[in-house]
Design a protein around this nucleic acid. Sequence first.
DNA 1: GTCTATACCGAGATAGAC
DNA 2: GTCTATCTCGGTATAGAC
Lengths: 191, 191
Amino acid sequence: MTQPDAGGGARRGDTRARALAVALRMFAERGYANTSLREIADRLGVTKAALYFHYRSKDDLLAAILREYVDDLGDLLDDAAHRPASPATCEWLLCELAQQRGRWGSDLLRLIRQNYAEISRLPVVADMRQAHRRLLLALSGPGADLAGRVRAQAALVALEGPVLLPGDDDDEQATRAAALAVALEIVRARP
Amino acid sequence: MTQPDAGGGARRGDTRARALAVALRMFAERGYANTSLREIADRLGVTKAALYFHYRSKDDLLAAILREYVDDLGDLLDDAAHRPASPATCEWLLCELAQQRGRWGSDLLRLIRQNYAEISRLPVVADMRQAHRRLLLALSGPGADLAGRVRAQAALVALEGPVLLPGDDDDEQATRAAALAVALEIVRARP
DNA sequence: GTCTATACCGAGATAGAC
DNA sequence: GTCTATCTCGGTATAGAC
């Protein structure tokens, strides 16, 4: 799996998009600081300089990945904003979130959680934090107290908890479903 | 706060211990990869070479911090192992864990969570993972199924969830108490 | 046990040809 | 769009005096 272009598909013109996918995987697996542009370029089958044509810097490459994430999350939050603020909406949001994260795969979440020290230097982090605030607000309701916000936060991390658990050999689908069930439980236990 | 030795205390002979505390704080605040040994030495009031006398490498310094953590956690787990496997023990463990983390402060947890990509290269990570497994086992019970383990994991992350929430201006004590309450709720909801 | 000075290396980034 | 070649900088790590 060391040779370039394991996908075997088209090689010309899609470097920009392929770079995003490859970088995401490598950043998630090996860490942002421990992954050099040279390694990314190698696996991509191009040179470092080619990467610099598409992205102005290494940070820029990381930011591009994260921007996809916040945009997608923002769309979901917009949908949620058009619904009435109710427990039903809250549960609907958790389900949608679980689905969305299933589509994203675990790499993106691991990238964010395990490299947050680097990410927090980037400008995109402001948008990420705002999205997180909106998420908490939607989950806990408009005038929630401290306990309510902590509960919402707990439901959120419960949802992604299993993703961060390394090396358990359970079925991924089943684990995700169990996590969603627990997250729903948490918000339902709200007095 | 830029000048060395803000503590104002003894300066000779305790470099090794002070280095641990200073490094912990800086690694947590600025990130492991973004903190150079030169910066640590400066704030410590010594030179880089002095650091290398006490710790063989930057990784070694980080590992020493983490080893304190795993040892302390291991002691707690040993205590738990001497108690009967019951829901009461499980709740007791959660409370002790919350207390212990209060003593450690938020820096250590943030260091681990936000720099896990770097940490996972170190040998100590094996002990950390084992401690985590023991923790999950103690919380979920001996023969727990998938749902039980996910629930235990959720309780764990719920406990540290608020620590990872940046910039909320709530009272730290109250937030910690609320997190513990939610974590207890989660394990109590176990069927 | 702590310092000065320096070697060394790999990283990100750029220039300019093709 | 992609290459080769090169630059620069900051990092870790070491040698040896005090």
